[in-house]
Design a protein around this nucleic acid. Structure first.
Length: 571
DNA sequence: GCCGTTTTCGGCCCGACTGTTTTCAGTCG
């Protein structure tokens, strides 16, 4: 049973405890444990075997026993008992905006409603408004929420989120009563691979005109909530946006608060409380006074820890690391020296080799690996052996004209369904760099797929595994593959795993990157560009790598050309 | 149910906004 499955069980228990009106701190304990387990980069099943479960903060002796029962039997008697006491379908009602635990208890106990259909019927029949504490507005809000509820749960890809955020920021900055400062916060700032809604923090001496401008913006579909300091809108694009407006001296505190994550902030406040003061968007306060840190660095320092970059703020151990001086020195975009996975018009790319080389040089890259598809990928006009050699000749010719830059003659060779590679070793040995990727047989079982990729990892000519899990965010699940094993073999063979920077892949994900670097795996942050404009996507790959705690040394394409050559030839 | 730099018992993150009331509980992030 993996971390995610265990976390799901604890989350369900937490919801059921809430529904049954148990001690709210008990459900909070389950929810906290679920978060810790779901976000642990170490395998909980293995920790359990090693008797180290109690090392996870929030796991005590009772939860330790429950984790062990889950791992040993695949189920949990405690959950089975809880399910007998409350219908499981009730949990879904909590997804509706405006329905919390108290309202849920009320409609369950007084009206016997247990599912979405029952709730909708009761709202339409105007039965909700007769309950104490619920009026006409709440009833209408629930109906409204029911209609939008599927819609609201969709998350944006990161590049879409950045585009929308840019548009909203530009609008607010250009208002006559423009803010002294404005910045996008939330999961966007943390570089999360998908974003649910957008959060903005603005500094202004006079908040009212800015709040008004936000409410009247052309992209507003509806104003969800509006106070003096905070405005929430539903955009016509289908997601919510929050604006928090503070006095300029509180900007750093507000930015930290609104960047989250929620779990990170909760953990920070726990620590502050233990030290006898409290932290909020209004600064850091003790019993008699409140101070406003002028920067986030200052804020973290006052809490007794090193500055934590936004990408790490998930309560996945970054606070402990910041307290003990063990935070990683995160990869910077400027440290990327070249792209090792791009396509040209020789296969399914849009640009000539000259165009690509010029674009790479403009970016200040030292190298660019041309890695077109291999022959079996007909749909992408995969290259035959003959075409590969012709392309090699052109690359050699072009390289004669470059100074301080080189095109690498590479190939993205298919890992075929039978586990072999699309080209024989002789041709692969001729290439400067070889990426091996799965483009077919996605439906094979885990054992078969894992074996295919492990074979490729063990081929001495293969330098990088491309998009290792094959997922397309929001469109295609990862194929069934034992990533833990891939990480082990990659570490052993010093084969790099790709952090594919395309915002609809971002493959590997942050947790695997973190797990891998603990094992000594190296990664390549590549764009897989099919058009030179997508070379910019490296930005998203760097964010993802940073979320995986990656440092410069973990990434092969931070190496200058001569050292990259050494790595490519040493293997 | 967890946990300890005043605690092994008695706490458990913080504040904005809304709706229903008439001073505040519930929800949300």
């Amino acid at each position: 049973m993996n971390n995610w499955e265990i976390a799901k069980v604890f989350d369900e228990i937490a919801d059921l405890l809430d529904i049954l009106g148990e001690n709210p701190y008990k459900s909070r304990a389950y929810r906290r444990a679920a978060h810790k387990i779901g976000n642990a980069y170490l395998d909980v099943e293995q920790l359990s075997r090693e008797g180290r479960l109690l090392e996870i903060p929030g796991i005590g002796s009772a939860l330790e026993k429950k984790v062990e029962e889950l791992i040993n039997t695949g189920e949990l008697d405690y959950l089975i008992q809880l399910r007998k006491k409350a219908p499981a379908s009730l949990r879904r009602l909590l997804l509706i905006p405006g329905i919390g635990i108290k309202t849920l208890q009320l409609i369950y106990q007084r009206l016997g409603i247990t599912d979405l259909e029952g709730l909708e019927a009761a709202a339409r029949e105007k039965r909700l408004r007769r309950l104490p504490g619920i009026g006409v507005k709440t009833e209408q809000a629930i109906l409204h929420g029911l209609q939008n509820h599927a819609f609201l749960r969709r998350r944006m890809l990161l590049h879409h989120a950045f585009a929308f955020a840019g548009e909203i920021e530009d609008y607010l900055k250009n208002k006559a009563a423009g803010p002294a400062a404005i910045q996008a916060a939330g999961s966007l700032r943390r570089g999360k691979e998908t974003v649910g809604d957008l959060d903005f923090v603005a500094a202004a001496d006079n908040p009212a005109p800015l709040a008004q401008a936000f409410k009247e913006a052309p992209f507003v579909k509806e104003v969800v909530a509006a106070g003096e300091a905070k405005v929430t809108i539903m955009t016509k694009w289908g997601f919510q946006a929050d604006l928090l407006i503070v006095q300029p001296q509180l900007f750093a505190s507000a930015l930290q608060h609104f960047t989250g994550s929620k779990e990170h902030n909760v953990a920070l406040r726990r620590i502050a409380r233990e030290r006898g003061f409290k932290v909020s968007e209004h600064g850091i306060g003790s019993a008699d006074q409140t101070t406003a840190p002028s920067t986030e660095e200052e804020l973290y320092r006052q809490l007794g820890m090193a500055y934590i970059p936004p990408e790490l703020r998930e309560d996945r151990g970054e606070i402990e690391a910041a307290q003990s001086g063990a935070l990683p020195d995160l990869l910077e975009a400027a440290e990327i020296k070249g792209d090792l996975h791009i396509h040209s018009e020789w296969s399914d790319g849009a640009n000539t080799l000259q165009e690509l080389a010029a674009a790479a040089q403009e970016r200040g890259y030292q190298y660019l690996a041309v890695t077109d598809h291999s022959r079996s990928l007909h749909i992408a006009r995969g290259l035959t052996e003959e075409r590969v050699r012709q392309q090699r000749e052109e690359i050699d010719r072009l390289n004669e004209g470059f100074t301080n830059f080189r095109l690498l003659a590479g190939i993205e060779v298919d890992i075929l369904p039978d586990g072999s590679l699309d080209f024989d070793d002789q041709l692969l040995a001729e290439m400067d760099i070889v990426i091996a990727s799965v483009h077919s047989g996605f439906k094979q079982d885990e054992k078969t797929l894992t074996k295919r990729v492990v074979n490729a990892l063990r081929n001495r000519h293969v330098d990088i595994i491309g998009h290792p899990t094959g997922r397309l965010l929001g469109r295609r699940e990862p194929y069934a593959i034992d990533v833990g094993l891939l990480l082990e073999v990659a570490a052993e063979t010093d084969t790099a795993l790709e952090v594919n920077a395309s915002p609809d892949r971002l493959d590997l994900n942050d947790e695997y990157i973190r797990q891998g670097r603990e094992l000594g795996v190296r990664f390549a942050v590549n764009t897989d560009s099919h058009d030179l404009h997508y070379l910019d996507d490296v930005f998203y790959g760097v964010l993802q790598a940073r979320r995986g705690w990656a440092e410069r040394e973990d990434i092969v394409n931070t190496l200058p050309l001569n050292e990259l050559d050494d790595w490519l030839s040493d293997r």
